[in-house]
Amino acid sequence: MDIEAVISGIGERNSRAIARAISLVEEGNPGAERVLSSLDPPSVEKAMVAGITGAPGAGKSTLTDKLISHCRGLGKRVGVIGVDPSSPLTGGAIHGDRVRMMQHALDEEVVIRSMATRGRLGGLCASAGAAARIMAASGCDPVIIETVGVGQSEMDIIRIADVTALVSAPGLGDDIQALKAGLLEVADLMVVNKADKPGADMLSMELKEAVGDREGRVLETVASKGEGIAELFRAITDVFGKNVNSGERDRRRCEARRAEVVDWSLEMLRPHLQRMAQGEEVLSGDPRNRARAIVQSLLPPEDR
């Protein structure tokens, strides 16, 4: 499929074109730049990007599956990006999120893509952000990004997403203290899934106490039975709507785009840096000082 066909196919909602476009970005193919500059700005601007994060087994994929059904009922076209970590040793990854979403496999209005972090700088930020914009340009609104809440990726997701929901569930052993370390402050919504299980009320109570639940930031769901899904989606769109009106959405997007620019720049510089480092007498002189000299040589005089 050539670049022209990819570009025109995105607006035509062609599955193969959308998928190829995302691959071009992932592979660092030069054609990606033409594709990305062709995306319809109003569609990208309008689409809500929702992040779903939390511990493995909390029910994120089941929730996403039910959110898809709910959105389809509202006539919305939905994009889903499932991010899983790449093995640092082999580069391999397993993506199992689709197992819970196969009921939508033949629905052309549901676009699902699995992505591995591929050990990039900035984790998933650079590629998943671009993938979300490609989906948005093909008419997807919302785009849902599911990430496993371990390590850096959950902070990345909060950066890319307009609204983030942190999913927990009773019996996973992720205690409030661990959740508290950073995420509670930045996640917009806290979802206690598996509310059918013992311990859910306790978990909700503790979360409400921790965040001071005045605005209904803590919600209970039973994803496996589809309970609480409409309420969750309404809460997500409420946060989004409020942030659009207050300018907070644009402020967040601005910050995210800036970070993405830095990630891409570093990524693009890497091969040049590698070449420059090769030309050096590697064993003479301290590496840090050599790095300084290389960077200085790249900077305009006034910044040296």
């Binding site: 599955s15 391999g92 993506h95 689709r98 197992v99 196969m102 496999a105 699995s114």
Partner: peptide, 20 residues
Amino acid sequence: EVIYTGIRRTPEQIAAAAVQ
């Protein structure tokens, strides 16, 4: 990078997922 789709899938579901 392995995408696993689960059991009892129809050939059409598998093909659609492979394209996406």
